[in-house]
Amino acid sequence: MIIDIRGVSKRYRLGQSKVYAIEDLTMQVEQGEFLIVNGPSGCGKSTLLNLMSAIDQADRGDVIINGVNVAELSEAKRATFRNRHIGIVFQSFNLIPVLSALENVMYPLSLRGDRNARQLATEALNEVGLSKYLHQRPVHLSGGQMQRVAIARAIVTTPSIIFADEPTANLDSCTAQSIIELMKKLNDDSGTTFVIATHHQYVMEQASRVITLRDGVIQSMENQPVRECAV
């Protein structure tokens, strides 16, 4: 078990009142899963992913990642914890514009002072099929290529789990499909655990499990027929 969430709530202030983005939610994520979180807009998918990736803190309940209760970590420790254990892929890629593809992938390693950053980043970019674009700046890459760089940046630290919040929302459906295929391939080949928030139909078919949220609570949880899943 990589992630263990127990009775977690997260509220946001909306004018005078407070609204629950996530309410008393309990769930687990197992090693090697390809977990999809879906549901209508505003149902709390991003909030849930932020809690599970130690980006945000719960108001109530425990979020335990790799056996560590993230609420007990300081801000700085939590950052270091994310760097070591968690990979993140964003909807709008969020590459650092002044850096080349290679340097973007090196970046999370450089934050921890890894001397092999260049070599590891080159390998990661190879893995996502971008070995020819190492020295391109993000502006010179297509959306799909940028998201591949972002995926390389997520896997380069060999995290136990990768979170992707609507990774295909800014891509055309053809590119979107190739990105999903890439993530699925990484899941199959190296057993990297993925949690993906998406509406994308094609992704659902790949999922090992689909969680549907509505108004901050789990509406349904379906186990897909696990097709000869590795690990």
């Binding site: 700085a76 950052a79 969020n94 650092i96 999370p108 934050l111 940046r153 630290t157």
Partner: peptide
Amino acid sequence: TREIGTIRALGGTPLQ
């Protein structure tokens, strides 16, 4: 702001 959020999400500490 968003770039700084990204750096923090990737594991950059406040000090960094």
